[in-house]
């Protein structure tokens, strides 16, 4: 599966509530970040966890967020980077 996003792209994490082995923590859902790295494609762990083959592999990115935006606190100056699979991301 070719990767849809490249470094520097602004992305929004989908705000979805799904049951199961989800690898996107709640605290970034609905938040906007920047693609900092593309790591390649990997079998989808959200399917692997239930005995599936996880195929096709899904692109995985390092997405960078400003803590100030994540927590709505302008006094925070630092950065949080998280690994997020492409199906959780949309262009921002």
């Amino acid at each position: 599966m070719p990767n849809r996003f490249k470094e520097g792209d602004a992305v929004r994490v989908k705000f979805e509530i799904r049951p199961g082995h989800i690898r996107t923590p709640m605290y970034v859902r609905g938040k906007t970040g920047i693609i900092a790295a593309y790591y390649g494609s990997f079998p989808n762990p959200e399917k692997l966890a239930y005995g599936g083959d996880g195929l096709p592999p899904v692109p995985l990115y390092g997405v960078r967020f400003h803590l100030s935006q994540l927590w709505s606190d302008p006094s925070l100056k630092d950065i949080l980077q998280m690994d997020i699979y492409e199906h959780w991301l949309e262009p921002a």
Partner: peptide, 28 residues
């Protein structure tokens, strides 16, 4: 608040140093 957390653990970083927290959620 990584800056405060690190300070509590004994790492006091200059204000000019950017902290990057890596949340390891997937295959990396």
């Amino acid at each position: 608040n990584p800056r405060a957390a690190l300070k509590e653990m004994g790492v006091e970083l200059d204000e000019k140093v950017e902290i990057r927290v890596l949340d390891s959620t997937a295959d990396v």
